[in-house]
Write a protein that binds this DNA or RNA. Structure first.
Lengths: 154, 154
DNA sequence: TATTGTTATACTCTATAACTATA
DNA sequence: TATAGTTATAGAGTATAACAATA
């Protein structure tokens, strides 16, 4: 039987201000564990996590302006320039100047980029599914609810 | 009313293999949002997130061997050397050679490090509590449960 | 003037592997 | 031989701010 600590009788129903700390630690460690697992697989494909993020975001689309890509991936524009540069050097992505707007670029996967996406994205999903697949449908739903709530806080 | 998609009548009770994908995306974005929020505050104190992680782990302890610190923070040993170096240069931390074992070091906060810890750790908790405090006690418990389950997968 | 993106700084972190020195 | 930690390598990502070009 756990002793439910209360600093005074009148606090019994309250939540301590620091009660979230262990929860936050769980968030950090859970994410670290996940991202290490994920990143190892991504590196095998010769990509870094941000590069994979970009490829995944652009896969099966007709491309999108860099500022929208930055917004979706939460990579800041200065950083995104470098990430895009490296993907372009690898021949996986192209900057297209859209007709009628010469102030923005559209990032589009090249055929090689699409090919890589078609190969590694399903493989990565399969790899991750080996772990996520252990969650029941109910657990998945609860997890989704909790994470959305968490995200809404920030 | 959402249309509950089922590929065939016999799949109604099953979970699609890819059902976890949106959940995973939520995990990534929720964590990104959290860590950006957290990191901004940490940077104001002149620390990087890994440095803060180390300071937080060592605060209110009598120090610990580097390999244990590496294990707790999930920072690999090669990387940890650099992080520790920088904290040592800042005068926040010291490597101590324990009596009877000259093969390992013990990382200990200096008085300046303890002072910084005493100042910024509570302030950081207060800063984070502004957001986590919006969760009810029940939500906190559910969140903890879900995160532990997630972590157990990896 | 506001938006889009690049460039320039200056670090910090990262994985990986070879290496040294203990035990 | 196994363990603890450092060093060397080689990038890659990060924030930030100044900048150029276009709308």
């Amino acid at each position: 039987m756990k002793n439910s600590v209360s600093h005074s009788p009148t606090r019994t129903q309250e939540t301590a201000k620091e009660a979230f700390i262990p929860v936050m630690r769980e968030l950090v460690r859970a994410f670290q564990a996940f991202s290490h697992y994920s990143a190892e697989h991504i590196r095998n494909a010769g990509l870094t996590p941000p590069q994979f993020d970009v490829i995944s975001t652009l896969g099966n689309t007709e491309g999108m302006p860099l500022h929208k890509l930055a917004e979706k991936t939460l990579i800041t524009k200065g950083t995104l320039t470098g990430v895009i540069d490296r993907l372009e050097h690898k021949g996986l992505l192209q900057r297209i100047v859209p007709a009628g707007n010469r102030r923005s670029f559209i990032a589009v996967l090249t055929p090689a980029g699409e090919k890589l996406f078609d190969e590694i994205f399903p493989a990565h999903i399969e790899y991750l599914g080996q772990r996520f697949g252990r969650l029941s449908e109910t657990e998945l739903e609860t997890t989704a609810t909790v994470l959305k709530r968490l995200r809404s806080l920030f």
